[in-house]
Amino acid sequence: TFVEFNGKKVEYPTPEAAEKAAKKLAKKLNLKVTKKNGNYKLE
């Protein structure tokens, strides 16, 4: 499962880990999380 932000793509071993990381990053970077095709994107 990938988390995409600032043009970077980071892969996580589980969807749970990706979701957790996405939410944490979104909060830190003041972005919102969108889920697309099972992957997460911060914008």
Rank of each mutant, 00 (worst) to 15 (best):
A18R: 00
A26M: 04
E19C: 15
G38Y: 03
K32P: 04
V3S: 00
A17M: 12
Y12A: 01
L29D: 03
K27N: 09
V3Y: 02
Y40M: 06
K28G: 06
K36Q: 14
N37R: 05
E16L: 09
N30D: 08
K32V: 14
L25P: 00
T1D: 02
L42H: 03
E11Q: 13
L25A: 05
V33C: 12
V33H: 02
K28D: 10
K20I: 11
K27H: 10
N37Q: 07
L25F: 06
E11T: 13
G7T: 04
G7M: 04
K36C: 14
K9E: 06
V10N: 06
K20F: 10
A18T: 02
A18I: 00
G7P: 00
K8E: 09
L25Q: 04
K27Y: 09
K23F: 13
K27C: 14
L29K: 05
P15N: 09
F2E: 04
L25H: 02
V33T: 03
V3F: 05
G38K: 05
K23V: 12
T1N: 12
V10S: 08
P15R: 12
K24E: 14
F5V: 08
F2R: 04
G7F: 05
E11N: 11
L29S: 03
L25N: 01
Y40T: 04
N6Y: 13
L25K: 03
Y12N: 00
K28T: 10
K8V: 13
K24H: 12
K36P: 06
A26H: 02
E4W: 07
L29M: 10
E19H: 11
L31A: 05
E11I: 14
T1E: 02
N39W: 09
A18S: 01
P15S: 09
N6W: 14
N6C: 15
G38A: 04
K35V: 14
G7R: 05
Y40P: 03
T34V: 14
A22W: 01
E16I: 09
F5H: 08
E4V: 06
E16D: 09
N30P: 02
K36G: 08
N39Q: 08
P13N: 08
F5K: 01
K35L: 14
Y12L: 02
K27W: 07
T14Q: 03
K35R: 11
E4D: 05
F5T: 03
K8L: 12
L25R: 01
L42T: 03
N6L: 15
K23N: 13
V3K: 00
K9P: 03
F2T: 10
V33Y: 07
N30I: 04
V10M: 12
Y12D: 00
